[in-house]
Design a protein around this nucleic acid. Structure first.
Length: 867
RNA sequence: GCCGAAGUGGUGGAAUUGGUAGACACGCUAGACUUAGGAUCUAGUGCCGCAAGGUGUGAAGGUUCAAAUCCUUUCUUCGGCACCA
């Protein structure tokens, strides 16, 4: 008997076996219940990393489990193949994005196969192939027809030196990552999807996603950010126009002492023109617009602003208030204008203090009296209105309604709902993406490409520009074209490509029949498979990708292409795989293999300097805190690697890398290996015991009960929340129990019941482990003499009457502290337990002459005596 | 800054939803076996204490017969923040 599980031979053998037998090929079958399990498809960055291994292992276990439960399971895999890294790699390595991408796909596909995942590879897809993106372009045209897409000017990060657009990621502390120049904001024409049309629907359905984790739906709700309030008009002094503001606090309207406009607000330039402030305003706007405008960056800047030179009228009291432009006012939110109420909003308060503006209290709290001169900060709470004309004395919550009604009557404002969610800008000024199928004609302006001309192919015989800009504009055979409408020969194509989030918003439909060429997807197959029953992916996608996918289903429903709204019935957001970072003072981040530990100090192998061991963070190439799955596969094989991912932490929690823990998994695998093979040698042709526990006694009974408890525990752990870590511990306990039995002792050797129970245990250990460590289980299944493949077996069932012994352990507490324990028959009533507990010697010591005030008995568990 | 999580032994993590804190595993200690061991098996292992006992779930309060679990305040770490995917 081999003492060790030889992963190299065995895993290769079974992978070939599965491939040869097409074990994982799946077709629609109306006689079976379907189960669609999807893992977020990877970006082909070059190598599978531990995050992928973990994600796909979790999925694979569920798939194999569901198969054994009798489901017809769809488990596809593909490639999110467009994206920026391909372009960067192409520039750095003097290759082509397509070549780089396809090479990576090949490498990663091989790695996935080595891990033994049960994909139906016939359904593989890559989003960079024309047969895929053709249908994305087709959908774009449909959306254009229905006015679900529109064009507007919007800001991008711009590097003047490189003459190119930068992603937020490419901006490092306001500078271009390539050349180090200051990044500016540039306004470009771009395409937007009207996702805000579905804001209300996307929001309300959050509560119906019962199979999603609460924190994810909560984040989505906050992202959509619905708020109810009022839109109020402020007349501009000396102009016919009004500034419109959105506010959730119309009750503070009388306290608005100044107005703030976003720097991009169209009024800022037009109003300041001709005033003494014109120059100052222009300078300020320029400065702000050159700063990175993402919200997290914005919060870091100090609040600042400039008077525009004009005034407007507060409609509540007709007082003149100054109009400012300020960096904290966002054009994207509400109307781009903020009615500032410094007494009751902290941001406005700080601004007013800084620029010496009026502060006027209009709400007095119930428990104290505010004084403008002494208040250290704004008061944003509830109270009673003051300085508010006819509304004085009213509770502010009531005043929200009343003031809005009054505004409506006087045509100065109205009730309004505002969403934080903005329309989805999909234009990317990049090469490696889906071309936007639109042509610009000097006569006909914006003209969609004709459907018959799809796919609009991304030319691949092209040289990339060193600055990272899109080469499409320089590539005449693509750029110059005929107008599809009038035929003019000097029309120009849109050189932008689509955001890669577009591809990932519908790929799960395509998997249902990935090579279907009569439409975007095969409706019949989609009807059978969709929605996805279980989606699994990183928690870092909790908002954008999931929201966009939900939005896309609504678009397709509106276009009457599908008949459901929600793509993912259940969602598991797996935690990240983390590891500490290592930073060398000379070489920056270093890989774990570039450092070594000597006398408790971590040293850089190159320069011998002490390496700083940093925080435990998500594994990433840029931080070099990665473990290469290849090394694990080589040393331990797929099953032990898989077992590590499953055992070390529950799926939703972050997993911290730990070399020692892998060693432990390896030990367990070999322990099971020896146990199964040894007992098989000893008990050939024994039929496993499967009856009631009543007919057993002694060790055989105990072991039988333990085995049935294990089946129940493992099944429950998988069914309820995929807690494989506890499922594995349960199997470990059973294995430990069996190791504790001396099978060589004479009385066990002659005990046929025991032999039958042992056979039962052995079979079930293999079955229970089979979804987790499939190669290992297949091999053992074969070696215990089974003819068919383990994956074709039904999932084990436990025998109900073999779950518990009749004795239970009662814990005795005095005043909540444990003082004694005893074992008692579970049928005994509370009174008897009480009597027994009080008689206990260890208890008498604590009760003595004290009066018993209260006794609490928890059935079959605990008794607490209060004295 | 805003939104969302997580803090339990030397380490990863368990605790049928308020009822024995530390399952299972790593590490460590001791022993057995062996030519050898970084293989394997057995036992022990939260902390303080010789012991009796005390104490203990990031910190501080509170509710309860009983709190890792519920409430309040607070600290630390991680993720997302719309052009990384």
């Amino acid at each position: 008997m081999e003492k060790h599980y030889n992963h190299k031979e065995i895993e290769q053998w079974w992978q070939n076996f599965w491939e040869k037998n097409q074990t994982f090929k799946v077709i629609e079958d109306n006689t079976k219940k379907k189960y669609y399990l999807l893992e977020m498809f990877p970006y082909p960055s070059g190598n599978i990393h531990m995050g992928h291994v973990r994600n796909y292992t979790i999925g694979d276990v569920i798939v194999r489990y569901k198969r054994m439960k009798g489901f017809n399971v769809l488990h596809p895999m593909g490639w999110d193949a467009f994206g920026m890294p391909a372009e960067n790699a192409a520039i750095n390595n003097n290759t082509h994005p397509a070549k780089w991408t396809y090479e990576n796909i090949k490498i990663m596909r091989d790695q996935l196969k080595k891990l033994g995942f049960s994909y139906d590879w016939a359904r593989e897809l890559a989003t960079c192939k024309p047969e895929y993106y053709k249908w994305e372009q087709w959908l774009f045209l449909k959306m254009l027809e229905k006015d679900m897409v529109y064009r507007k000017k919007s800001y991008v990060n711009w590097c003047e030196h490189c003459q190119t657009v930068l992603a937020n990621e490419q901006v490092e502390s306001d500078m271009c990552w390539r050349c180090g120049n200051m990044v500016q904001q540039k306004k470009l024409w771009q395409w937007f999807f009207r996702i805000t049309d579905y804001a209300e629907d996307l929001l309300s359905y959050c509560d119906k996603l019962s199979g999603w984790p609460d924190n994810v739906t909560l984040m989505q709700k906050n992202w959509i950010g619905k708020s109810t309030g009022s839109k109020i008009k402020f007349k501009i002094v000396g102009h016919d126009e009004y500034i419109s503001v959105f506010t959730t606090r119309p009750d503070t309207l009388f306290g608005s002492t100044f107005m703030c406009l976003a720097p991009e607000h169209p009024f800022v330039e037009s109003l300041s023109k001709g005033t003494s402030q014109e120059k100052k305003v222009a300078e300020f706007v320029q400065k702000i617009l050159n700063q990175k405008r993402s919200k997290n960056a914005l919060e870091k800047y100090e609040k600042q602003g400039v008077f525009t030179g004009v005034w407007c009228i507060n409609p509540s009291n007709n007082k003149k208030i100054p109009v400012y432009t300020a960096n904290f006012a966002l054009m994207e939110y509400g109307t781009g204008a903020v009615m500032s109420v410094p007494a009751h909003d902290q941001r406005d308060f700080e601004f007013a203090k800084k620029y010496n503006l009026d502060i006027k209290i209009v709400i007095q709290p119930h428990n104290k009296v505010l004084d403008v001169n002494t208040m250290p900060e704004a008061y944003a709470g509830d109270g009673v209105l003051v300085n508010s004309g006819q509304f004085n004395g009213m509770e502010n919550k009531l005043a929200i309604e009343e003031i809005t009604t009054w505004l409506e009557k006087n045509n100065k404002g109205k009730k309004a709902i505002n969403f934080k969610l903005r329309d989805w800008g999909i234009s990317r000024q990049r090469y490696w993406g889906t071309p936007i199928p639109v042509v610009y004609c000097p006569d006909c302006k914006v003209v969609p490409v004709l459907e018959k001309d799809l796919p609009l192919i991304l030319p691949e015989d092209i040289d990339l520009l060193d600055n990272g800009g899109s080469p499409l504009a320089e590539f005449d055979s693509f750029f110059k074209t005929f107008c599809p409408r009038c035929g003019r020969d000097d029309a120009k194509r849109d050189t932008d490509t689509m955001d890669t989030f577009v591809e990932s918003s519908w790929y799960f439909l395509r998997y249902c029949n990935p090579h279907y060429d009569k439409g975007m997807f095969d409706s019949e197959a989609v009807k059978y498979w969709m929605p996805v029953d279980q989606y699994i992916g990183g928690v870092e996608h909790a908002i954008l990708h999931l929201l966009y996918s939900r939005y896309f289903m609504r678009v397709l429903q509106t276009l009457e292409l599908i008949d459901f709204k929600e793509p993912f019935t259940r969602l598991l957001t797996q935690g990240m795989v983390c590891k500490e970072t290592l930073t060398c003072p000379e070489h920056g981040y270093v890989f774990p293999e570039e450092a070594e530990i000597l006398d408790g100090k971590t040293l850089c192998k190159k320069c011998r300097k002490t390496v700083e061991v940093g925080n435990v963070v998500k594994m990433s190439k840029s931080k070099k805190n990665v473990v290469d799955p290849n090394i694990l596969l080589e040393k331990y094989g797929a099953d032990i690697t898989r077992l590590f991912c499953l055992f070390t932490a529950p799926p939703e929690k972050d997993l911290e890398w730990n070399d020692d823990s892998v060693e432990g998994c390896s030990r367990f695998i070999n322990r099971v290996w020896r146990l199964v093979l040894q007992s098989t040698e000893k008990s050939e042709n024994i039929v496993p015991y499967t009856g009631s526990s009543k007919n057993l006694s002694g060790n055989a009974k105990k072991l039988y009960i333990k085995a049935n408890q294990t089946i129940k525990k493992v099944t429950n752990d998988i069914e309820t929340n995929f807690h494989f870590n506890t499922a594995i511990s349960a199997v470990m306990e059973l294995v430990n129990t069996m190791y504790g039995i001396d099978f060589d002792s004479s009385h066990i050797k002659n005990d046929t019941d025991m032999k039958k129970v042992t056979a039962f245990c052995i079979e079930n250990i293999v079955l229970l482990l089979s979804p987790l460590v499939p190669h290992f289980a297949e091999e053992l299944w074969k070696r215990i003499g089974k003819k068919s493949s383990v994956i074709e077996q039904p999932w084990p069932k436990y025998v109900k009457d073999a779950l518990a012994t009749s004795d239970v352990l009662i814990v005795v507490q005095v005043n909540g502290k444990i003082r004694s324990k005893f074992i008692i028959d579970s049928q005994i009533d509370d009174e008897a337990i009480k009597e027994r507990a009080i008689k206990e010697k260890a208890i008498q010591k604590y009760i003595k002459d004290k009066e018993i005030k209260k006794v609490i008995v928890v059935k079959n568990k605990l008794i607490n005596i209060v004295v």
